Computed example of a mutant assay.
Amino acid sequence: MKFKWILLVLLALSAPVLSLFFGAASLSADTIFQCVFAQCADPVDQAIFMEIRAPRVLTGFLVGAGLSVAGATLQNVTRNGLADPYLFGVVAGAGLGAAVAALLFNSPAGSEAGFPAQMYSIALPASALAGAVLAVLLVQVLSHTTFGRRIEHMLLAGVAVSFMLSALSQFLLFVGDPFAANQVVFWLMGSLARVEGWYAWTMLLIVAVSTGVLYLYGPQIDALLLGDESARTLGVNVTRMRVLCLLLCAALTAAIVSYCGGIGFVGLMIPHIVRHWLGVTSRTLFIGCALLGGFFMVWVDVFARTAFTGREIPIGIITSAIGSVFFLLVMRQRQT
């Protein structure tokens, strides 16, 4: 077990460092060393490293870590190995917010109405975040008033809200400006191309705080795996603990989706791999998922921006292609 942890830590630490060498612009080892520990001799290299490549690598690691930890938490508190952070309609809600922002700030109709196009870069993530939060609130209200408080009903409410919000966003894109619609569709596929330095540091704070809180409640989350009645006999407030975990996962996922778009299946795949490799206890699972999820997302992003010269593949396409195959393998394993 100790060897596995050492290997995982080495992989997680080496991935961001090695990925700095990959990109449209070629940076030598000496240049990267100077940029990290001093200042690049060339101002262009300095700008490329500090404003584009380093924030993107850091954000990629944190996005992978955040989605993986959220997925592991949902799978434990729902006792459903196929649970995923996007079950609560977060992506659909973010897509609706992005569609509204595009129609208001990045279309001829919005310009005629007096909405400034310069605000689009700020309005897009802000509106997407608002839409993601709206989706989470709708799921919470429906699951606690209409369907009851059973956890499987909450998951079904998330599916229903996801379809409803997706239909609304698709209608807006259908009646809106084609150019704005194309931008939203590309954004929904998931990408780190728009990442800036401030977002990387913001994500570091969000992921660190969320993972830290979940780590502190690790024993209580483990108790939920035994069943609600067993958890209550151990002194765990099941409803409060489950709602806290769900809200943390939803907020973490919403923060990621609001800026990076839809990146699916990461929260499904990584927890399964870590659980099989390191164990099922929540604290072990959270740390392992943060490390392996970050490692995975960094290299997916490297492939996305280097596979084709002059073009970038949306990350969501790659993770969905890998995740769908992984999902089928998990389903087949459960049937055998």
Rank of each mutant, 00 (worst) to 15 (best):
F3C: 08
F3V: 12
K4L: 11
W5T: 03
L10S: 13
S19M: 10
L20S: 06
G23Y: 01
L27Y: 08
L27P: 04
T31I: 11
F33W: 10
A38E: 11
C40V: 00
A47S: 14
A47N: 13
R56Y: 09
L58P: 01
G60F: 00
V63Q: 03
G71V: 00
T73W: 04
Q75D: 07
Q75E: 06
T78C: 08
R79W: 07
V91R: 04
G93S: 12
G95K: 00
A98P: 01
V100G: 02
A101N: 00
S107K: 01
P108D: 05
A109R: 12
S111E: 14
E112M: 13
F115Y: 10
P116M: 05
Q118E: 08
M119P: 00
I122K: 14
L124I: 00
P125F: 01
S127G: 08
S127T: 01
L129E: 02
L129S: 02
G131W: 02
G131M: 05
H144V: 01
H144C: 03
T146Q: 08
V159Q: 06
A160G: 07
S162Y: 00
M164L: 14
L165C: 02
F171G: 04
L172P: 05
F174P: 11
F174M: 14
F179W: 11
A180R: 00
A181K: 03
L188E: 05
W198K: 15
W201K: 09
W201I: 12
T202C: 09
M203W: 02
M203C: 09
I206D: 03
V209L: 03
S210G: 03
Y215K: 11
Y217M: 06
Y217W: 11
Y217V: 08
Q220R: 15
I221M: 06
D222V: 08
A223N: 09
L226R: 14
L226N: 11
A231F: 12
A231R: 13
R232L: 13
T233S: 15
G235D: 03
T239E: 13
C249K: 04
L252Y: 00
I256T: 06
S258H: 01
G264E: 12
F265S: 02
L268T: 06
I270R: 06
I270T: 09
I273D: 01
V274K: 12
R275D: 03
R275I: 04
W277P: 13
T281S: 11
S282L: 12
S282D: 08
F286P: 05
A290I: 09
F295G: 06
F296N: 10
V298I: 10
V300S: 03
D301A: 02
F303N: 05
R305Y: 06
A307M: 13
R311Q: 15
E312C: 06
P314E: 03
P314Y: 06
I315P: 05
I322K: 07
S324V: 13
F327V: 07
R332E: 08
